[in-house]
Simulated scan of single mutants.
Amino acid sequence: MLSLLAASGVAEPIYWENLGLRPYLFEIGGFQLRFYSLAYLLGILFAYWHLSKMIKAPGAPMAQRHADDLFFYCTLGVILGGRIGYAAFYKPELFASADVFKLWEGGMSFHGGVIGVLVAISWVAWRGGLNWLRVCDYIAVNVPVGYMLGRLANFVNAELYGRPVERDFPLAMVFPTDPDLLPRHPSQLYQAGFEGLMLGLLLLLLFWQTRARWRPGLLVAVFTIGMGLGRFLMEFFREPDAHLAYVVAETGLSRGQWLSLPMIGIGLAVLAYALLRPAIGSTRAGAAPAA
């Protein structure tokens, strides 16, 4: 999509309306199947299908019944954590009214969703006597696909657009939801490509083509560093929320960037832990060789 947009935007910005997009797949009566809802659904279904496939490979830290529990509780974690995180990190005034429950009006926090998923994993791991860190490894591999779909849905909704650019910038776009109608970065596509597609392919490659899954914490460390670094860099292209523009003015960084810095630090610490400890199945670990 980026290549097509670049080819079409040589000297003038690309107008979102000319792409023939709309925020819903179909409409029946007053009901619309919106792409944003579809992105959540497809991301969760992919995660469940792929996790069920992953645990059939040697060395899985869980059984199918645990994957079924994770499917349910992680879905709750994404939705509740994402919404509560949005209210806590970006709009605390939502807690003062019933608006905090109005998911259909938008407003979800990635960092809040991560916290919600970690709580869900902790509950399932504790109840099932599972290795928490290894369960996190298996879940982390599946997250970027859902994230990519969510950012593509943001683009289709013409929301969360980027910062202003020169009119002759190859990827400059004018979004109808922008009150100023300025040429802007299509930052939703940048995030879908970097934090979604590229990170997802890297994690899939590490899981299926290397012995990364035998080092507890390695996969979730790569995910955490990749997501944190990707979000930090992409925020330089993304337009800050209007009510949080003061954060950038006062600190030089956006709220999303400040929230991403701890992610990078935690990811580096977990990466060091994973690489310094013996792999499962090694002689030092005292376990049976992996199949």
Score class of each variant (00 low, 15 high):
217 G>T: 04
286 G>F: 04
274 A>T: 04
53 K>P: 01
193 G>R: 01
145 V>T: 10
75 T>L: 13
74 C>I: 15
166 E>D: 15
17 E>S: 13
124 V>A: 00
245 A>Y: 02
214 W>R: 14
42 L>W: 00
116 G>R: 06
176 P>K: 13
242 A>G: 04
113 G>M: 09
133 L>D: 09
277 R>D: 02
98 A>E: 06
204 L>A: 08
49 W>I: 10
272 A>R: 14
243 H>Q: 13
126 W>A: 15
217 G>S: 10
5 L>H: 11
203 L>E: 07
61 P>A: 03
226 G>V: 10
84 I>V: 15
276 L>V: 09
157 N>F: 00
2 L>H: 11
265 G>I: 12
207 F>W: 00
236 F>M: 06
143 V>A: 15
75 T>F: 13
165 V>M: 09
101 F>L: 15
8 S>F: 07
165 V>R: 03
126 W>L: 14
92 P>N: 01
49 W>Y: 14
63 A>D: 09
85 G>M: 07
250 E>M: 11
198 M>Y: 03
70 L>A: 09
240 P>N: 11
126 W>D: 09
167 R>M: 10
167 R>T: 14
291 A>F: 07
59 G>N: 11
180 D>V: 05
26 F>A: 04
44 I>R: 01
51 L>Y: 00
159 E>L: 01
80 L>E: 05
72 F>I: 15
136 C>W: 01
290 A>V: 12
251 T>A: 11
36 Y>E: 00
90 Y>W: 06
106 G>H: 10
273 Y>S: 13
114 V>D: 00
30 G>E: 01
186 P>Q: 13
179 P>F: 09
181 L>W: 06
192 A>E: 05
204 L>C: 10
151 R>T: 00
275 L>V: 11
